[in-house]
Amino acid sequence: MNTKTTHKTKLSLALGPVLYYWPRETLLDFYRQVRHWPVDIVYLGEVVCAKRRSLGYDDWLSIAHSLKKSGKKVYISTLTLLEAGSELGLLRRICKNREFLIEANDLAAVYRLSREKVSFVTGPAINIYNAHTLKKLVSLGLQRWVLPLELGATELASIRDAVPTVATEIFAWGRLPLAWSARCYTARAENRSKDECKMACDADPDGRLMYTLDDVPFLVLNGIQIQSALTQNLAPHVADIRRYGVDVLRLSPQSRDMDAVVACFDRIRCSRVPNTDDLATLETLASIGTCEGYWRGKAGFVPPAVVEARL
């Protein structure tokens, strides 16, 4: 894609993988609705915890088929933290499928796919902080990448200048997945070990809030993953994002009102300047509030400029 024309093309909307442990019926129902949503790209699969098996790989494939029939471009997302041999086994099986492209969330997937000369995209946990790294991965088959969460507009612009031809995606909506561990923090909150977790995370369709000692909602425990309590919302910056040559906006699923989030972003991507009603609506769709600091080169939790000015 030529950067000079990029600003004229429509931004694509991508629905990120579900980061939480939702029951089977909830997931099936969710993706039945997604067929009718104005998203272009859907990422499917378990990326957080291999113990979460409300859907198996074959179930994901059948959802992938039905979404593909509805005109969606479907990617299978791989697990982010791979430790056990069984996890690597499933990863290798996923990487052998030739029907759907893979979103690699660990270099293990990049290794498998590049050896087979199969193209791939990367998720936000693959550390692409500079053009040298991006170029190397492009030479191995990378087709699209997600800007690391902690980088912002300035870093994006300089990487895009150096490597203008590869498609770029940014994490535009959702609680930020900030860290990963061997330990399950949801199980720990229940005084259990990971091996005895009894799937404690099934009680938390949007993760479990962790507050500071003075009661500020700070982070979210999501099994082995830690997220921000605030929802990152880059909708106010869509005009800039387009100008920087971004191709895809990633919206990370939440249990409630995801259809409304998608509808707002769909209208915003189609207009030159975001509609203030849509921006106001999005603020109400984030359960704790929104943040956007990373995009502006600040701390991630910094709220939108208008809110910051009032503080």
Partner: peptide
């Protein structure tokens, strides 16, 4: 946390180990 994949510090300060 998995080293290289922890952004807790930059979430609060803008500066991370990475």
């Amino acid at each position: 946390m998995v080293e290289g994949r922890c952004q807790l510090s930059s979430y609060l300060t803008g500066c991370s180990p990475n």
